[in-house]
């Protein structure tokens, strides 16, 4: 496109004008190329729906009319007024999606926040101090991989009863090693950089070096791990809800809704399909935003966009 430009410009004057002033269509294209516009819009829309569920939901989320059982989505030409259909007890799928997204996002955000902070902290300590501290933390990470989180969740749920707090705790327990491992590796490579040594020459304390020099260096990694782990968390939450130790029913969650519909996949595919699609959209959006953030947070790449 650009390579053909100069040839045309020599032969015809109008072509030259078209090159010198950027047409609006190309300006829009440039924005689309430098920002993940679609992902951000989608994610914001889902977050908005989740936050404003009370205002937007046309039906209550937790009880339905049995005569609406398996109502076909109105969006696809069904004769009920359930936009995305109704489930096996006649509850409105669209309304449940809004509330379900709220619960799932809350669980995911909470887990990532807890597991991310814990994992980042332990990874920093592990990589920086090395020696027996590193040894202890890394063995703990290995141990976490050997503990079946689902089984642990089942045992705890039986002992303590399923609750939101328990779900957060168990999911965080399963997630922090991913952060710790990545942050440790990054810390190891950063701590011997010349600028870290020079910070010590300038008299910087260990805390200052960790927070001013190492943490900003691993932040991009943490963001990428976080956005990628959100999908895992949402899926893990779905699995736990399916086993009855997740978000206690009848509170809707995206994962719970998928498992609700699994018995009716041939009769009423929409019960599982729509929450599945929402999960996929959330996860995909986060992956794209994560990649964009990583590039954005690296000042050496910033000039390239």
């Amino acid at each position: 496109m650009t390579s053909a430009g100069p040839l045309q410009a020599v032969s015809s004057e109008p072509g030259r004008d078209a090159l010198s002033s950027t047409p609006p269509r190309r300006r829009v294209w440039r924005i689309f190329r430098s920002y993940p516009v679609i992902s951000i819009t989608l994610l914001l829309a889902i977050i908005f729906g989740a936050v404003a569920a009370d205002l937007l939901a046309p039906y209550p989320a937790t009880h339905g009319e049995l005569r609406d059982r398996h109502a076909y989505p109105a969006l696809l030409g069904g004769d009920s007024d359930h936009l995305l259909g109704a489930d096996s007890v006649g509850r409105d799928i669209f309304s449940r999606l809004l509330y379900g997204a709220r619960v799932s996002l809350l669980v995911a955000a909470g887990t990532i926040l807890i597991a991310g902070s814990l994992g980042t902290f332990l990874g920093l300590i592990s990589g920086w101090y090395g020696g027996w501290v590193d040894e202890a933390i890394m063995r703990l990470v290995d141990a976490m991989n050997a503990i079946p989180v689902v089984l642990l969740a089942l045992v705890l749920a039986v002992a303590l009863g399923p609750s939101f707090a328990l779900l957060l705790a168990v999911l965080s327990l399963g997630q922090w090693p991913a952060f710790a491992r990545q942050v440790r590796a990054e810390t190891l490579s950063l701590k011997n950089r010349d600028y870290v040594q020079l910070a010590r020459v300038a008299g910087a304390s260990t805390g200052r070096i960790l927070f001013r020099h190492i943490l900003p260096g691993v932040f991009a990694t943490v963001m990428v791990v976080a956005t990628n782990q959100v999908g895992t968390v949402i899926l893990a939450e779905a699995g736990l809800s399916f086993l009855g130790v997740g978000v206690p029913p009848p509170t809707p969650s995206l994962g719970g809704m998928i498992s609700d519909g699994r018995l009716y996949l041939t009769d009423a595919w929409w019960i599982s399909a729509f929450p599945g699609a929402v999960i996929a959209l959330i996860v995909l959006s986060l992956v794209f935003i994560g990649d964009w953030l990583r590039d954005r947070l690296d000042p050496t790449l910033r000039q390239l966009d």
Partner: peptide
């Protein structure tokens, strides 16, 4: 230090 690329925090 020797390496001016590694000596400054990017």
């Amino acid at each position: 230090f020797q390496d001016p690329w590694a000596s400054l925090n990017p």
